[in-house]
C-alpha cells in the first residue's frame, strides 16, 4: 500500500521535477562549468581554471560592490527591520486614519520601479525639487547632485530602497501582530505589565516567526539589490553605487565577460546561503509557539 502511495506521489512530483531539472539544475550545472572559463557568450568558452574566482578578490569594482551590498543588507537589518516593526505596532492601533495610513505606507511597494526611479531622479537631480526646497530654506550649502556625487549617491540609494521596501515589511508585521490574541495583552495589563514589558514579553516573542521571515527577505533583498541603482545611476559615479548584482550584470552584458560574471554569481549565491543560514539559526531559536 505504502509503495503504491509513493509511486503516485512520485508521479505528482515528476512534472515539477522535470521543470526544475530543465530550467534550474541543468543551467546551474552548466553555469558552474562556464565560471571556470573565459567566455564572451558568443564564441566557444576557453577553460582557465580558477582564474575568474581569483580575480574577484583583485577586482576593485567587485570589492566596492561587495562593500556596498553588505552596507545595504546591514542597513536593512539594523534600521529598516526595527522601523518596520515600530510602524506596524503603531498602525495596529485603532484610529480614524488607520486604513489610510496603512495604504500610504504600502503604496511605494505597488508602484512601478521605473516610475519611482524617474520621479526620484527628478527630485534628487541638481535642478530637482529637493534642492529647490533647500534653497528656499536658505540651506544652499546643502545643494548638490544627490545621485551624482560619490559621497552621497549610495546613502541616497539606500534610503530610497528602504523607503520603497518598508511597506512590504510592515504588512508582514501587521499580519503577525493581528494573529497575537488580544487576551494575552489584557491579562498582562491586569498583571500590571507596562507597554514596554508587553512589547518585549508578548509582542516580540510571538512575532518571532514573522521576524525570521522578514529578516530573511531583507537580507536576501539587500544582497541581491539591482534595479534601483541600475536605473538611477548604473553604478556610478565611478563605482560608488555598484552592488554585486549590478556588477555581475555589467560584467556579462557590458563587458562581454560571461564566465567571470557567472563566477561572481556563484560567489554571491554562496554568500547569500551562508548569511541566511546563520540568520535562520539565530532567529528560529528564538521563536515561540502559542
Amino acid at each position: 500500500m505504502e509503495r503504491k502511495w509513493i509511486g503516485t506521489a512520485a508521479l505528482f512530483v515528476l512534472p515539477a521535477l522535470l521543470l526544475f531539472i530543465t530550467f534550474t539544475y541543468y543551467p546551474f550545472i552548466r553555469s558552474l562549468y562556464y565560471s571556470f572559463t573565459t567566455w564572451d557568450s558568443i564564441r566557444k568558452p576557453v577553460f582557465i581554471g580558477l582564474d575568474n574566482y581569483a580575480f574577484l578578490f583583485e577586482d576593485r569594482k567587485m570589492i566596492a560592490a561587495a562593500m556596498n551590498t553588505f552596507k545595504m543588507a546591514l542597513f536593512g537589518l539594523l534600521i529598516q527591520n526595527p522601523l518596520a516593526i515600530w510602524i506596524a505596532v503603531l498602525l495596529n492601533r485603532k484610529f480614524v486614519t488607520g486604513y489610510f495610513l496603512r495604504a500610504a505606507v504600502f503604496f511605494p511597494v505597488i508602484m512601478s520601479l521605473v516610475v519611482l526611479s524617474v520621479v526620484w531622479s527628478q527630485i534628487l537631480s541638481y535642478e530637482g525639487t529637493l534642492n529647490l526646497v533647500l534653497n528656499q530654506l536658505g540651506l544652499s550649502g546643502w545643494v548638490r547632485d544627490w545621485l551624482g556625487e560619490t559621497n552621497t549617491v549610495f546613502i541616497t540609494i539606500i534610503l530610497l530602497t528602504q523607503w520603497q521596501g518598508l511597506g512590504y515589511c510592515v504588512i508582514f508585521y501587521l499580519a503577525g501582530l493581528q494573529s497575537i490574541p488580544a487576551d494575552l495583552y489584557e491579562a498582562s495589563r491586569i498583571d500590571g505589565a507596562g507597554a514596554i514589558q508587553r512589547f518585549l514579553k508578548i509582542t516580540v516573542p510571538l512575532l518571532m516567526p514573522t521576524i525570521t521571515i522578514v529578516t530573511f527577505l531583507i537580507i536576501v533583498g539587500g544582497l541581491k539589490l539591482f534595479d534601483i541603482p541600475y536605473i538611477l545611476t548604473s553604478g556610478g559615479p565611478g563605482t560608488a553605487s555598484y552592488t554585486l548584482a549590478l556588477a555581475i550584470y555589467n560584467a556579462a552584458f557590458r563587458e562581454n565577460n560571461a564566465g567571470y560574471s557567472i563566477a561572481a554569481g556563484v560567489v554571491l549565491m554562496l554568500i547569500i546561503m551562508v548569511i541566511t543560514f546563520i540568520q535562520l539559526q539565530i532567529t528560529r531559536r528564538r521563536e515561540v509557539e502559542m
Binding site: K61, D145, G148, E149, T150, N151, G235, G236, P237, G238, T239, A240
Partner: peptide, 11 residues
C-alpha cells in the same frame, strides 16, 4: 568610463 564619471562628479 567609471573613472571618467568619478572625475566629472568632482572626485
Amino acid at each position: 568610463m567609471e573613472t571618467m564619471t568619478k572625475i566629472v562628479s568632482g572626485a
